[in-house]
Every structure is written in structure tokens, then in C-alpha cells.
């Protein structure tokens, strides 16, 4: 792409790169610290196929040190140009290389290639940024674990395949951490959360 082509796609990012990044980070931190609780994430506008919360997560966390894998749906000229310009993150073709991945629902049936860290360095795992149409409407599941006082009921609209994949990639402390974004809202799901199906612990 030439420079003229890139600039054609460019759109504004955070209004205030310092304070908007901070507010978005704090919402994300709270989302992950209290899994299943909806947090507002409204400091960015939508960008092409990215909804405001999804784009805000990208702007808050991505830079030259974070290789990103893009689901086909998000692999557009506008998204590539804006992430390259505003974040400078390398976009990688191999899922194994990614520290962050931008996913939509159809991608959730196969999470096998994303890095889930090692026993010695469980932090060196990929973080999934998953954009959904909504953060409710699915079957009601019960979440337990750190950040949840007792049990939290969450009904993310996710197919059973996601939970199977997540379970397959979990061997605490190894595992995948996820943010679910829709509109201007986000829900966090760290690997430490145990999800119960019909009173039976599955993940």
C-alpha cells in the first residue's frame, strides 16, 4: 500500500490518547477482575467492522510489542490501516505468534492454535478480543472463581463449541483470557473463572 492509500482509510482514534486510554484500561481491568460484570467502554467510535468497545480495547492495549491476529471478518483495509497507524502493532498470519487476537463468533469453534502460555510463564499467552452482537441472550451459565463473591449468572450468546474449546485450552495456570465486546460494553473472562453447566463444573 502506498502512503496515499493508507491515509485514505485513516480515521480518528481516541480523542485524548492519554486519558481515554486510561479510562478504557480501567474498564478492562475491572471487567477482568470481576468476570461477567458488564463494564462501559465508550471512548472510541466504531471503525469499519469494529464496534466502539472493540476498537477501544485495541487502542488501549496494542502497540509495536503486540503481534495481532485478525479474524477474516476484521481483516479489512480500513482496520489494517488504522491499527497500523494508531497502534503500530504487527499483524501476524500465524495464530501461534499472536499476543492478541481479534475474533468474531464464527472463529470461536477453533481456539487450538492460540498460545495459552507455559507452566513457567503462564502470562505469555494470547488475549482474545471477541466481538459479539450482544452480551446477553444466550443460555444462562454460572461463573465462579476469583472476582466473584459467590456465583454470577452470565448469559453470553455463545455456542457450546466455545466452552469446549476454552476447556480444551485450559490447564491452569495455562489458559486463554478473553474480553467480549458489543457496542459500548465489555465483559471479561479470565482463565481463572470456572464455568458451571447444569450444576456440573466443566471448565
Amino acid at each position: 500500500m502506498t502512503v496515499e492509500h493508507v491515509s485514505h482509510w485513516l480515521q480518528p482514534a481516541f480523542n485524548d490518547p492519554v486519558l481515554d486510554a486510561q479510562v478504557s484500561f480501567r474498564a478492562a481491568l475491572k471487567a477482568l477482575a470481576e468476570p461477567g460484570l458488564v463494564q462501559g467502554m465508550d471512548r472510541a467510535l466504531a471503525l469499519d467492522g469494529l464496534q466502539p468497545a472493540t476498537y477501544a480495547l485495541c487502542l488501549a492495549f496494542l502497540d509495536a510489542d503486540t503481534p495481532l491476529w485478525l479474524a477474516p471478518r476484521f481483516d479489512t483495509a480500513a482496520i489494517r490501516a488504522n491499527l497500523a497507524f494508531h497502534c503500530g502493532c504487527p499483524i501476524v498470519a500465524e495464530r501461534e505468534m499472536a499476543l492478541f487476537a481479534l475474533l468474531d463468533e464464527p472463529e470461536l469453534s477453533d481456539l487450538s492454535a492460540f498460545d495459552n502460555g507455559s507452566e513457567r510463564y503462564p502470562d505469555q499467552s494470547c488475549t482474545l478480543l471477541i466481538q459479539l452482537e450482544a452480551l446477553d441472550g444466550g443460555s444462562l451459565l454460572r461463573w465462579r472463581g476469583p472476582g466473584i463473591r459467590d456465583v454470577r449468572a452470565v448469559n453470553l450468546p455463545l455456542a457450546a463449541a466455545f466452552w469446549q474449546q476454552r476447556s480444551a485450552r485450559s490447564a491452569f495456570p495455562r489458559g486463554l483470557d478473553a474480553f467480549f465486546a458489543a457496542g459500548q460494553q465489555v465483559i471479561g473472562l479470565p482463565r481463572s473463572t470456572r464455568v458451571l453447566f447444569n450444576l456440573e463444573e466443566a471448565a
Partner: peptide
């Protein structure tokens, strides 16, 4: 901001693996 982002990413992992 680059340093803050690095620390913030670390904090997410710290929260995920208490």
C-alpha cells in the same frame, strides 16, 4: 504511554492468574 501500556497488559495477566 508505551510503558503504561506494557504495565497495563501485565496487570491484565496478573489478574487472570491470581
Amino acid at each position: 504511554e508505551q510503558t503504561k501500556r506494557m504495565i497495563r497488559r501485565g496487570l491484565l495477566k496478573a489478574v487472570a492468574v491470581p
